[in-house]
Design a protein around this nucleic acid. Structure first.
Lengths: 197, 197, 197, 197
DNA sequence: GATGAATGAGCCTTCATTCAT
DNA sequence: CATGAATGAAGGCTCATTCAT
């Protein structure tokens, strides 16, 4: 009866899930959970809104799933920096550049939405508590220490420097959400001056 | 014959209006126009939701009124910088400090909301178009030029420097919306390094 | 202490009541009970809306009071016809003319509203049941019989003739509520043709 | 892949639209736009109130749509009279009979509501201005002239006669809104006496 | 008595979610 | 699996009514 074998079924299912999550990420990242309507996600994914509920039981679940994925992805991205070529400052420059670029920003924005918006599911709130900015700080500590030791970075409290710098980058990413408004993205070298001697 | 004299009536009305606007500012600044329920404003102002409509005809009108007020206030704040004592860099430092502080941030956040959210009244959209970031740049140009001439500021394109710096400050103000999340506000001197030689 | 003696107090009270009832009649007659806001009545009476509640406990009570008064008044008007000079047809002509005129129509319209609108208080519904069109028919029967006997009126069932004629007049009164719409009020003699030989 | 073919979908949509419009016509005709609650229409159509908004964006749009349809329908009805058999007076008699009958009265009442109520959408007001009673007069002029020339109608100003007659019929239709109240619908021949020699 | 600020029930409308097909 | 019709909880707003002054 079934025209497709089980494996194919599963593959289709997975593809659909990806398609929906990708669409949802785009919308949630820009508009937050409250500002996002399920119909917007359906439109972005080019499927009917009814179909969303075959893959996710609710808007909350979809959001939560994305946040979890985003946390993994941002961890990974942060680790990636160590594999980049060049001196510590080169790596930091590359990381900064990445964060200012269009791509990959969405996961970061989603986390920001999760952190600062209302109407966020309880589960996400818990995730956020366990997974604060400190996490990033911890991951970058080795890199920044190395830079400091190499004299490429300014002196001073390491964790504070990292957290401050990440905050600045975060703020810029959030602002840049929408091209409107005439905000100006600073050049990477200008940003780096904050942490270089 | 009148139970309260006219002056008293007017005073009550004015006080209530202020009370409502103050409450609304707080909520709108953090949650945007869509995320804000009239009942939230009523609760914050400790009045019934019905009473809101004695003073403002709609959520839109309330929001618009606040945005107009915010634009005036931020203009004023920007002008104030010239009256501060000290050299140009001192003034910029003071301005930066002000923007990082609690007070007066709400107006700024409100304008950010007005600039980037959906569901913003048509009139506000028009206001925003006429009143872009360029406005602030224009207002600060004389101060920054003076600083550059005094050798207190880095060389380079003036307008770009101002816009970039304001974007960084804006981003930080937006992040700082809620104390949660563990973002770290950079020290003022760290921020100033971006624009000093 | 009291600057007015009791009698004067009472007189003022009565005058205010009249003032309110007159205003309310005007508004209710044209807009029905649902379409009428208490604030409209207050505005028409040139008093504050709060004061209405010193004289009438509710919109319903005000409406009901007026309907009762209207029933008495329309009875009286119907009796008046017998006191007019001239032959039966002259009296009917005068009655018709009166009903087409501006004045005194309001009570009639109010009764129509009470008869046909929703949201009418239970008590009014009961009044209407006890006080149907038949009442008017009964009151005019003698006059019409006289006219028929004098050969001034057409032959045929008396009650049906009266009821039909009154329905036509009622319909015209209702239409004429508002001057807009370009309805044309027929000349009295045209209307009389329906009941003359 | 589609669960229902396109034709079926369209058919359901059309049926529902008709069902809603029919229910709304009934309620609006009797209660006007203010007195009608969307829940009443939903109840009359035996659907949930939410579903109304899948088919019409607002109460206003629903009302306006119906008024437009009513204007077309009443035009058509007025034209139909010329296709009836018999002499002019026969046709007028048939038209009169039709208007007194149950059927099709609702459209007429709706137009009356649109003409005389408050809270009517701006667009409807414009429609009404362009589409006054004169329109009907114009459409019936040829018929009445013919009748006059055949000596079947009374002498006198043609347009006035038509407008007056229509006003009487309109008034009766409005009264007959609800069977309650004991108004008596005059016999057609009685009404015709107003315009016959 | 008189005023108008204040309250809250109720209606219009939106949108997350369900379900027949 | 896929669609979109259908439902109903919840939010914006109005207005009858109350009450402090």
């Amino acid at each position: 009866m079934s025209p497709l074998n089980e494996e194919q079924q599963l593959q289709i299912r997975d593809e659909r899930r990806e398609q929906i999550m990708s669409a949802a990420l785009k919308v949630f990242a820009r508009r937050g959970i409250i500002g996002t309507k399920m119909s917007m996600i359906a439109a972005e994914a080019e499927i009917s809104h009814g179909l969303l509920y075959h893959y996710f039981t609710s808007k909350e679940e979809l959001f939560t799933t994305l946040v979890e994925k985003a946390m993994l992805a941002s961890d990974e991205a942060m680790q990636m920096v160590y594999k980049l070529p060049g001196s510590p400052i080169d790596k930091i420059r590359a990381l900064t550049q990445d964060m200012m670029d269009e791509g990959g920003t969405d996961y970061f924005l989603l986390i920001h939405q999760a952190r600062t918006s209302d109407g966020v599911p309880e589960k996400v709130v818990e995730l956020m508590e366990r997974y604060s900015m400190d996490n990033y700080v911890k991951q970058l500590r080795a890199l920044f220490r190395e830079g400091q030791e190499a004299g490429e970075l300014a002196e001073g409290d390491l964790d504070e420097m990292i957290a401050s710098y990440l905050s600045v980058l975060s703020g810029l990413m959030v602002l840049n959400v929408q091209k409107i408004g005439g905000y100006q993205l600073p050049k990477v070298d200008v940003l780096l001056r904050m942490i270089t001697p």
